[in-house]
Design a protein around this nucleic acid. Structure first.
Length: 387
RNA sequence: GGACGGGUGGGUGAGUGGCUAAAACCAGCAGACUGUAAAUCUGCCGCUCCUUGCGGGCUACGGAGGUUCGAAUCCUCCCCCGUCCA
């Protein structure tokens, strides 16, 4: 059996250089995964994503289940076939929607009842159902359903959510194994053999060290293919995000990938990597792009600002992306001011390039052993503010 | 020549005696965005002063007068712009 994950190098700081082997290709880690919630990274074609060098994308269980429906997607070639994406896909379980759609849901030990944000209809998501949907989607990496809580939350709230998340993880794991056994009994190739779908557990525990440690330890006992750190970057200070992440990664098995969910700002990413994080995802580059915020080597640039109206320079002179090779700030600003859709497209292209390039540099820095230097240099550049 | 209707802050356009520096939207300016209910949201948007306060002063609803404690709102005249009738 070939290893799902291999660690190529671990630096003294804790940063790891690795490789994730999925049925849809290799993913170099530390990796940034663009978010494509509804089967699309908003604003970019799959072709562009491939050209940009994206190795793995995120999809969302909850959204795809609601529309167009996982059974339909299964019939149409699973998510890879349906959206014509040949590389790896990780699907989030809908746990984040427990947090973000808090007004539209009710959580019980059994699962979560959502009122659809699309038409108000009621839907029930349990750990087992979330797994079933993701199986249908055929994602390379499936996430267990978890309960992501808000910040700040009391110790009691955090404890309850972490316990529930663990119970759900246990049920998810059991359902995953049962699914495999059922296929074996029916003399069918197992999902694992067919698709090698991997299932990740998620550590919760809010901003409480004891809960995080307990959650991590328990989860490790369930032997997941990888472990995620969830419930962070929901409003707490960056230092606290790092502290909690460190508490968790310390307890996770070194041979399994660690995924810090929902991060982060470019200047913060090296911090997470140094804490032993291998995978990250964030809507920041795509959403910010649509809102006219471009990431550059000199900090954020708000392209709508009047000062760019006559600027013939590219968004980032140090950037090698096709947008910066071809278009001026003045033109991009014009597109945004005119509310032209191409503005969002070009900005998203640039921002995703920026993130992927950042990850390439981080991997290189790990290889050369100068990540710390890279990190402080990056921060001093990016924190200098908009250019 | 006559009859109506109308002229409001950069634009569209509410308001028909005090709660109105004047709704709302657009434009303009600035900011936010972290496992996507987000091509979204927030703030500012007449000028000016300071001890920056739900602070003071000034200017403002076509123009000029008037009524009133108080007028974008009522009256008079004038100037524009529509529509219709001659």
């Amino acid at each position: 059996m070939s290893a799902f994950f291999e660690v190529l190098k671990t630096s003294a700081s804790g940063a790891r250089l690795g490789r994730l082997h999925t049925p849809h290709g290799v993913v170099d880690t530390p990796a940034f995964m663009p978010v494509g919630t509804a089967g699309t990274v908003k604003g970019l074609t799959q072709q562009s994503l491939e050209e940009l060098g994206v190795q793995i994308l995120l999809g969302n269980t909850y959204h795809l289940y609601l529309r167009p429906g996982h059974e339909r997607i299964r019939r149409l070639g699973r998510l890879h076939g349906f959206m014509a994406w040949p590389r790896a896909i990780l699907t989030d379980s809908g746990g984040f929607q427990v947090f973000s759609l808090s007004e539209l849901r009710k959580v019980t030990d059994e699962g979560v009842t959502f009122r659809s944000h699309l038409d108000g209809s009621e839907h029930f998501l349990s750990p087992e159902i979330a797994l079933e949907i993701q199986t249908a989607l055929g994602s390379d990496i499936m996430m267990v359903l978890d309960e992501c809580i808000e910040y700040p939350a009391s110790h009691e709230q955090a404890r309850k959510a972490a316990e529930r998340t663990f119970d759900w993880a246990r049920r998810s794991r059991a359902a995953f194994i049962a699914q495999e056994r059922a296929r074996e009994a029916a003399h069918l190739p197992t999902q694992a053999a067919l698709f090698e779908q991997a299932l990740f557990g998620i550590v919760q525990g809010g901003t409480y060290t004891d809960l995080r440690q307990h959650s991590a330890n328990e989860l490790v006992g369930l032997d997941f293919a990888g472990y995620a750190v969830g419930g962070l970057a929901v409003g707490e200070p960056h230092a606290l995000t790092c502290e909690m992440t460190g508490v968790v990664t310390e307890l996770l098995p070194v041979e399994k990938p660690r995924y810090l969910m929902g991060v982060g700002k470019p200047e913060d990413i090296p911090d997470y990597v140094r804490l032993g994080i291998d995978m990250m995802d964030c809507v920041l580059p795509t959403r910010s792009a649509r809102h006219g915020c471009l990431f550059t080597s000199a900090g954020r640039l708000l392209i709508r600002n009047a000062r760019h109206a006559d600027d013939p320079r590219p968004v980032d002179e140090a950037c090698s992306c096709s947008v910066c090779q071809r278009y001026s700030r003045a033109y991009l600003r014009h597109l945004f001011i005119s509310n032209e859709i191409l503005g969002a497209v070009l900005a998203t292209h640039h921002n995703i390039h920026f993130y992927l390039d950042l990850m390439r540099r981080i991997r290189q820095a790990i290889e050369f052993g100068d990540l710390e230097e890279f990190s402080s240099e990056l921060k001093s550049r990016l924190v200098a503010g908009p250019c």
